[in-house]
Amino acid sequence: MGAVAPANAILLAAILFGLGLAGVLIRRNLIFMLMSIEVMLNATGLAFVAGGARWGQADGQVMFLLVLTLAAAEISVGLALILLLQTRRPTLDSDVGNRLKG
């Protein structure tokens, strides 16, 4: 069983991060933007875990855990906001967010 090189995992994290960023920038629908942010956060976590594996330290996974916490909190608030927006003003177009008032 040949061990995996963490460096390759880092490269994968870079690719996933780029894809997530592209999603955030391209999509206008808030729910898709939120998903893309999830992808980006996940890529960050992957980079942390790979780093931890490279040095054989637990810190990488601890950081991943914190990223996970952050994602959970962010998603709960973000989804609540999306629901609110949908009921108040039936569109999820982020480009009309600049008409936000009050």
Partner: peptide
């Protein structure tokens, strides 16, 4: 500063 989230994110990137 036009209030467009994607515009901001683009500049961030």
């Amino acid at each position: 500063e036009n209030g467009r989230v994607r515009w901001y994110a683009g500049w961030l990137a």
